[in-house]
């Protein structure tokens, strides 16, 4: 992969707040046209990393986003990227129509026509103040505004935090439908791992400021396997050092890492089911391992 195919390149990115490490030596290489999930628990450093990538924070390490230094060339960078930093950051005093008008004037990549098309599929009233809209509508409106920008990189930091299930689903459906068009790369952080899993091409796990996994979803599917075994063979299965185990209806689900070189054929023969582990299960497995 050539350097020009890399949208985000970070080397040795660290950050400390009041002497405590928030990020430790993070290296990243996010290729173009990918949908990357940045996943981690509260305090893992996701938002800090996003802020470093967007030039909202400065600190040790080198970062290039679309070939630009976010701290020094933020203005040029913001013309090519869009981000939703959190839910409910749209100004409450703006009317919907005024927000579109301002975006047209302030963002050279914003298309009013695209915005109108996207907005037509919602029930958001144009004349309403944003403060009068429901939380779900505000999230939808914000997504419409950023999707109408012809940006090469779209960064979403916990965009659905606090929304109900229906609104979260609507948000990701719209993102899936329109967000991957053109030359766009998506970087998403969220707690709702299960909801974004179907749209991800790559995943990065962060834990306590450290990167614990950086892989494509295809590679993950090849590397990890989840087998469900009856209680009678649990002891035998444990000798193969699973990454994680949990109790399920038919017995125990165990996740194995094929890269460890263990012969799993015997246990796979005894298993009652064989699946690809979900991201949530993998994340718990990595968390458990790093705690051990």
């Amino acid at each position: 992969m050539s350097e020009s195919d890399i949208v985000i390149r970070a080397r040795g990115v660290s950050q400390r707040f009041a002497g405590r490490p928030a990020l430790t030596e993070i290296d990243l290489a996010v290729p173009a046209h990918r949908v990357v999930g940045l996943i981690g628990p509260n305090g893992a450093g996701k938002t800090t990393l996003i802020n470093r990538l967007l030039g909202l924070l400065v600190g040790p390490g080198t970062i290039r986003v679309l070939g630009l230094d976010p701290a020094r060339e933020r203005h040029a960078l913001m013309q090519q990227i869009c981000f939703i930093a959190d839910v409910a950051t749209l100004p409450r005093w703006l009317r919907v129509a005024e927000a579109i008008r301002l975006m047209v004037r302030l963002h050279p990549g914003f298309s009013a026509a695209v915005c109108e098309t996207l907005l037509a599929n919602t029930d958001i009233p144009r004349r309403a103040h944003i403060g009068q809209l429901s939380k779900g509508m505000v999230a939808q409106l914000h997504l419409v505004l950023v999707l109408a920008v012809d940006a090469r990189l779209l960064v979403l930091d916990e965009p659905t935090l606090g929304l109900d299930l229906l609104n979260r689903r609507r948000f990701y459906d719209r993102l899936l439908e329109h967000g991957r068009s053109g030359q766009r790369t998506l970087l998403i952080t969220t707690h709702d791992v299960a909801e974004i899993e179907p749209i991800l091409t790559d995943v990065i796990f962060l834990d306590r400021g450290r990167k614990v996994l950086d892989s494509s979803m295809d590679a993950l599917a090849e590397r990890f396997v989840e087998v469900v075994v009856p209680p009678a063979v649990l002891t035998e299965a444990r000798t193969l050092e699973p990454c994680a185990e949990r109790c399920v209806r038919d017995g125990y689900a165990l996740i194995f890492d094929r890269s460890r070189g263990r012969d799993l054929s015997a246990i796979e023969r005894l298993a009652t089911a064989r699946n690809h582990p979900t991201l949530a299960d993998l994340f718990v497995a990595f968390r458990t391992q790093s705690n051990a």
């Binding site: 933020r74 203005h75 913001m78 869009c82 981000f83 930093a85 409910a88 950051t89 100004p91 302030l106």
Partner: peptide
């Protein structure tokens, strides 16, 4: 006010310094 209502983050997402 823009810090209090967090709309600062929206304005920071635009190409304006």
């Amino acid at each position: 006010d823009e810090r209090r209502d967090r709309s600062l983050l929206f304005w920071k997402s635009l190409p304006i310094s």
